[in-house]
Amino acid sequence: MTTAIQATSINKWFGEGEARTHAVKDVNFEANFGEMVYVVGPSGSGKTTLLSMISGILRPDSGAVTIEGADIWSLAADALAEFRLRRIGFVFQDYHLFPRLTTAENVALPLILQHRDWDEALSEARRDLEVVGLENRARLPPVKLSGGEQQRVAIARAIISRPDIMIFDEPTASLDGDTGRTIVQFVREHLLSDKRCIVIVTHDSRIYEFADRILKMEDGRVTGVERSELDAQ
């Protein structure tokens, strides 16, 4: 297996003086192509911070992040943006869908940012809305959708460009067990390949079965963990 993402002793502090928190503490992290890696852990343990640093959104205060051997944090702002656009698909903890665009247009945004043809982008968006079971919502604005449906729209937006690295922050938090499982299963079966790598932050034990590896984050530190250990909790 080739290494997709490698973070070497990365650190992140927030705030000043008394409020200063060490959110990510000297973390080493590795994810390989062909792998679906989960990060679990209590709220405030630094999961989102870690994801942001390994995906080129938040600059670590120290340490290095390489993706396929290339140091992403040495890229200039625009080059890094282009890198994220071409290689990474994101599901944010909140969905951040544009209320004035249709669901399909929201899903198509990454392709539109890649300057793809409009109609082509929208037909691909409809394809992925079908994947998340929302093919009949394509023309509605996201505000007409339930929370769970909006989350599925966000997932469709993350996978539409078939990026080789997918970073999902709690993608199933507002989905019922079956829907969440179905979607993650689809992602696992149809999108994961030996050229792709998926990192998922989750609290959702119902989808643990799809993970290749589960890491536990606690108070800014990452430790490996066995599934049985989690199931026992």
Partner: peptide
């Protein structure tokens, strides 16, 4: 729309 502009930025829109 600011947070959506932020989301676009995160996805990879250039300034």
């Amino acid at each position: 729309n600011i947070d959506r502009f932020g989301a676009l930025k995160a996805i990879g829109a250039k300034s």
